[in-house]
Amino acid sequence: MSKNEILAAIRRNKPTGAVLPSIPTFPEGKASPVVTFITMVETGGGQVIRASGPGALQAAIENRFPDAKRIASPIPGVKSNVALGAIHSPSELEPVDVAVISGRLGVAENGAIWVTEEDCIHRVLPFITQHLFLLLDEAAIVHNMHQAYEQIQVDASGFGLFIAGPSKTADIEQSLVIGAQGARSLTVVLEPPLTSG
């Protein structure tokens, strides 16, 4: 059996020693993580809107995509006209124009947002939709990836991911093109808004 052969070869050939290092706590930087987060999302080609409550979120969606025909969202209060519970094959989601999904945690250093299968209902939703909204609680923004992995449990969901912007590519002559195979745009809706404005 190849498994045993491979493991035996490793045992024969592997080096010894090498303890696992512990990861130190890195300085967090002076800037507010929310401010850094917003800058990083924008650098990655996403937009950030501050909106408080479902009414403001709905308004933001309608304002940004007034012509959207199919809006899919499991978030209560968002006017969804795609019955996510009735979808049998993920390919049925192909016509979705806008998906609105909750994110669990944001990372300031790179603008990434942790999203799980439970938030998407269908794993393919944040990719197959033409445009994506991610709702995020401002208080759930951490400084860096170390803090992020401390807070999330990667295997709590069968599928989870960090999303840091709209789908993009630079495969043709290093020219940046937004909208490769996944969502063409990302709008991050931060709630509640900063009182300091």
């Binding site: 990655g44 989870g160 960090f162 840091a164 912007g165």
Partner: peptide, 11 residues
């Protein structure tokens, strides 16, 4: 880039 756009964890 500070991170790839998608970092997917399949379990």
């Amino acid at each position: 880039q500070p991170i790839t756009i998608y970092t997917s964890h399949y379990h």
